[in-house]
């Protein structure tokens, strides 16, 4: 699949944003004061909003995007839009009340947690639902999105929060284990992807053309000599060329480095502000991870071009 920068940026930043929003909604402790409430709220909300705005850049008609809220009964993309906007509105209200009165409404926070989790889940379902892309069509995809949202949201919020420990655990340790867990889930996703190409999912040029009963099918002539929307969008192979190098880079930047930073901060008992460095490294690594998520995914249309 064609890795569109706008969509990569959207899934990574809105994941982190809604992860952070769910923690704020759950009542993660911050210092007193309207300014803190404003900054924390603006940061978490800003990440989520930046992602959502970015996602409209890949639309042919962004001016019609309000229409996308109408089909939540059938469409995961529509559900994602509805969940995101409802959650952000509630979160805006929550932050406003927090800023003005200093009170953090627990019941409103509970709705925000549910909304934020639902937003990340529905984002993942946009890809998971597609039977045409076997790499994505698995329950592991929402697991990966949720795990990375939790890890990135927590790492960011813990670096800015008021507390050193939560439930007896140092926040640096929690960030360490969340990062490890997220990458463990992603490794399982990758392991599954290795054995889930189109042929293994049961689709071949023979099933695509229905000519398998006659023999082996091979493309002799493309419909046109030039490229087309389908080959550019779904038979995108150039982006896969350096997949192994990119996977290595994403693991070093997004997994090894932030896990090492959080682990050392935890063991040394150093300032939890170090988690901010881990967060930035994780974001960089996730951009590469998400690039591969698209670039390595094979779409069944490619069978007609083999």
């Amino acid at each position: 699949m064609h890795p569109a920068i706008s969509v990569i940026f959207f899934t990574v930043t809105s994941g982190a944003g809604f992860g952070a929003i769910s923690l704020i909604g759950a009542g993660y402790p911050f210092a007193q004061g309207a300014w803190v409430a404003f900054l924390v709220g603006a940061l978490a909300g800003g990440l989520a909003v930046a992602g959502l705005i970015s996602s409209t850049f890949h639309l042919g008609h962004p001016e019609r995007s309000l229409r996308a809220f109408s089909q939540w009964r059938s469409s995961w993309l529509s559900r994602e839009g509805v969940c995101a906007v409802v959650t952000l509105l509630l979160f805006g209200l929550y932050t406003l009340i927090w800023m003005v009165t200093g009170v953090r409404l627990g019941w409103l926070g509970a709705f925000i947690v549910i909304g934020a989790v639902a937003t990340v889940f529905t984002t993942a379902m946009i890809y998971t639902q597609l039977k045409t892309v076997p790499h994505w069509h698995t329950a592991w995809t929402p697991a990966v999105y949720l795990a990375f949202a939790a890890a990135s949201g927590f790492t960011l919020m813990a670096s800015l929060g008021r507390i050193d420990a939560l439930g007896g655990w140092p926040v640096t340790a929690i960030a360490f284990w969340l990062l490890l867990l997220a990458w463990a889930v992603k490794s399982l996703w990758w392991r599954r992807a290795l054995t889930t190409n189109l042929a293994q999912a049961g689709s071949t040029p023979e099933t695509a053309t229905g000519l398998g009963h006659l023999g082996k099918v091979r493309l002799l002539d493309r419909p046109h000599t030039g490229p087309n929307y389908l080959t550019k969008e779904m038979v995108h192979k150039v982006a896969r060329k350096h997949a192994n190098q990119l996977r290595f880079l994403s693991l070093v930047t997004g997994a090894l480095a932030p896990i090492a930073v959080t682990g050392l901060t935890w063991l040394a008992g150093a300032d939890r502000l170090w988690l901010l460095a881990a967060f930035i490294l994780l974001m960089a690594g996730l951009i590469i991870e998400r690039w591969l998520f698209f670039a390595e995914a094979e779409h069944s249309v490619s069978l007609y071009y083999e």
Binding site: R64, A68, L130, E233
Partner: peptide, 17 residues
């Protein structure tokens, strides 16, 4: 149509452009 392209991704046959 907002031109999001998701329907083209959902079609196994490449029928939409």
């Amino acid at each position: 149509c907002i031109g999001c392209g998701l329907c083209a991704w959902a079609c196994p046959y490449g029928a939409r452009e």
